[in-house]
Design a protein around this nucleic acid. Structure first.
Length: 137
DNA sequence: CCAAACGTCGTC
DNA sequence: GACGACGTTTGG
């Protein structure tokens, strides 16, 4: 078994079952922009800051977002944690030294949220700022 | 199209 | 359990 792995790709999802409404059935353009097209990083960060410190409840239902493909949707940096605030890479960590092969962001810039597993992150009721010294596990 | 970065699997 | 490597996704 050279490289069995799990699935080399997604299952037979050659077609989607969503209703092809005239409004959404627009031509697939030339690129693949599923959703969130007009979301500048700056705007995104601002939103995160607000949600992280000003709003306890999300303005939108996160369930709808993950309902699309929770296991395939890639998360983005929160932009509010210390690592995210870092603008330059350290250039000394393994990721920086092996960025070409490792293809990963500098360890010092790795978002606290992304460090957690998708399951843990999805289970977290709050957004960062909760180290929780209870050590539940 | 390319570079950067995330997600998952394999190995130590 | 942590780290490394590779594939894939995402943004410019």
């Amino acid at each position: 078994m050279p490289k069995p792995r799990a699935w080399p790709g997604p299952p037979p999802d050659d077609v989607y079952e969503f209703s092809m409404d005239a409004e959404e059935a627009k031509p697939l353009h030339l690129h693949r922009k599923p959703l969130e097209k007009t979301s500048p990083l700056s705007k995104y960060i601002e939103t995160e800051h607000q949600q992280a410190g000003l709003f306890s409840l999300s303005p939108f239902d996160p369930s709808l977002d993950i309902a699309v493909d929770p296991q395939k949707k890639r998360r983005k940096k929160c932009g509010a944690c210390t690592p995210c605030l870092r603008k330059e890479n350290c250039g000394s960590c393994a990721n920086c030294l092996n960025r070409k092969t490792g293809k990963q962001i500098c360890k010092l810039r790795k978002c606290e949220q992304l460090k957690k597993r998708l399951n843990e992150w999805a289970s977290s009721p709050v957004i960062a700022g909760s180290p929780d010294t209870d050590g539940a596990q």
